[in-house]
Design a protein around this nucleic acid. Structure first.
Lengths: 354, 354
DNA sequence: TTGTAAGCGTTATCAT
DNA sequence: ATGATAACGCTTACAA
């Protein structure tokens, strides 16, 4: 008889269960892990299940992975966890993945290059990976073949993915400001080749053009998408001969930096300066006045990406991300935007516009 | 020479490499994955390595895990990723883990119960888990036996772990405020059984007592550790007959909520109210005035926990967390604290204290 | 309906 | 120094 005392640290296997139930090991496997299709005598099944319970049997996913050649694990690669936006993406993806029985191998692209992460992930036989804003150019295709890939916020002709309506976000911001009466509107955003930011800028530009307003090139300020970047950019804007009356920041961090610059310059928001952010992170509601911004469904992006991947792993292929409809975004009007101060009489301004 | 690229979906195994190099499969394993101790003819080794390269061989970690009975993966369980504090913890832990060759299975304890997560993790044969603020009571011990555990911010007689100097944090806050001349100081914090919060409160209370100041029980306000909680708690404080001149909030979110309440009540920070937070999340610097707070090294906590676990997996056991020296915290003085307004002449106040 | 046998891709223990 | 051979714990034909 097997010596399976509590002292032994050895894990309980299907063999142990089989021995105790008086059946063969494959029968145990059949009962415990197989489709309900498994034809096995009810009496036997009962015995096996009881034995498994008594022994505290836990299947070994590693062994299963080896033979099935599927790990039921996915990789999730994000640029930077301390950015709350990505934290939400991870959160959403993780929840769905766990619900569907997948484990999530988290990779933060902080110092480590993405290729190292992908290497490690494929060595672990992940069934697929979700790549968030990995930088379109930086994905060497050969690193990915054989793995299922889902992209977040990156257009691709090859892989499926999800994205938010970045162009719509830019447009909404512009239209909101224009509707308030602003004509001299600035843009602050990074020059990086991150697709989302490019699209936000494009949406902004187009909406302004559509409104018949040509934006002074001096009002486009490039800055890294951080608080510090927004701060610096806003400072230069305020130093201009004719500062804008409003500004659209490509994300909320930039906007919060802009707040600081305004505070230091004694510029009152929204009286002297309207500011629109983008993302709607939690802290948009914590500054005074609360930040008007475009809400991006970060958690939903992560969740959808995970669902897409899971479905694909189940053999249901998705179209390339280029052809997937982006998730809608929405304007959240708060206290940081208002009609421009009537430095010139309102009538004359209206006269200008007409 | 053949660059068999896209066509063959089958992964390259040690057998393939062996065939190409004209050696046996175990030899390949010996060369490719074994300690430098492996005695194998230089010429053979060379041939094997070349063959592996030409074929693009990647070791299969799953197979290795099965036979070695180690997965080189660890689980990381955190309460809530959208709290930037935990995001930092994850970030720190992940970096160290990756550096040490471990993969990180991330589990967010949001909806899912911790037992389910632990079940999944052990099924995947993780070598160990890091548990952050899992709530001392909620860890059924039997869920953990056989796994290596490292705790974050939880004292334990059984498992090793790391913690920040929570009591010191509370003390620093109190001492800072007392040094500024405050005598009527409030505390806002959760009643939950999270150890860290209890300790912060205790440190605060003791420091006040040591300063010879007895804190009015009405000035202890219980609130969930969120912005909303801080907002509500501060409101009730401001509504009191004799509001405090300063308040210590058990974390920065509470403090930011308190800011809001002050703004709405027309109470000026720091003139009418000094506020000290705890954690030093990024946004402490984004509010106006910038928040004075106690910096907790979140990332470092994660990193240390990971190192502790890795070392333990290498066979170097660590002492239980109760006996591990907590990580130092530090006071970051910013704009939200100042001497109390001299409602009574300063002299008389000094007279009171002497 | 169930047991036998053959792998999954490694590592580990031997002989040779 | 290298090559058989046997695990690791499981799934999956196929045979009984």
């Amino acid at each position: 008889m097997a010596k399976r005392s509590s002292a032994a640290q050895r894990r309980v296997t299907t063999h142990d269960v089989a021995a105790r139930a008086g059946v063969s090991q494959p029968t145990v496997s059949l009962v415990l892990s197989r489709n309900p299709t498994a034809r096995v005598a009810p009496e036997t099944r009962e015995r096996v299940i009881r034995a498994a319970e008594e022994l505290g049997y836990r299947p070994n996913v590693v062994a299963r992975s080896l033979v099935r050649r599927r790990s039921y694990a996915i990789g999730l690669v994000v640029p930077d966890l301390s950015n709350q936006f990505f934290a939400h993406v991870v959160s959403g993806a993780q929840r769905v993945a766990v619900e569907e029985g997948y484990a999530v191998l988290l990779c933060e692209q902080n110092g480590t290059g993405i290729d190292r992460h992908l290497d490690a992930l494929r060595a672990r036989q992940v069934d697929g990976v979700i790549l968030d804003a990995a930088g379109a150019s930086s994905i060497p295709e050969e690193l990915l073949d054989g793995i299922n890939v889902v992209l977040i916020d990156q257009p691709s002709q090859r892989w499926p993915g999800v994205a938010s309506d970045a162009e719509g976000a830019g447009r909404m911001a512009a239209e909101h400001l224009v509707a308030l009466g602003h004509r001299r509107v600035a843009f602050i955003g990074p020059s990086a080749d991150v697709h989302t930011f490019r699209m936000r800028e494009r949406g902004f530009t187009r909406a302004m053009r559509d409104a018949g307003i040509s934006v002074d090139p001096d009002l486009f300020r490039r800055a890294p998408a951080t608080v510090a970047g927004g701060h610096a950019a806003m400072r230069t804007l305020l130093a201009q001969r004719t500062p804008p009356t409003a500004v659209f920041c490509a994300n909320d961090l930039l906007a919060l930096g802009a707040y600081k610059a305004c505070a230091q310059a004694g510029v009152s928001i929204p009286r002297d300066m309207s500011i629109v952010g983008c993302d709607d992170i939690e802290f948009a509601q914590l500054v005074t006045p609360e930040l008007t911004t475009i809400a991006i469904p970060a958690r939903e992006l992560g969740a959808r990406a995970a669902r897409l991947l899971v479905r694909e792993l189940a053999g249901d292929p998705a179209p390339p991300s280029q052809h997937t409809r982006p998730l809608p975004v929405r304007l959240v009007t708060r206290g940081s935007t208002a009609a421009p101060a009537a430095s010139a009489p309102t009538k004359s301004r209206l006269g200008d516009a007409s």
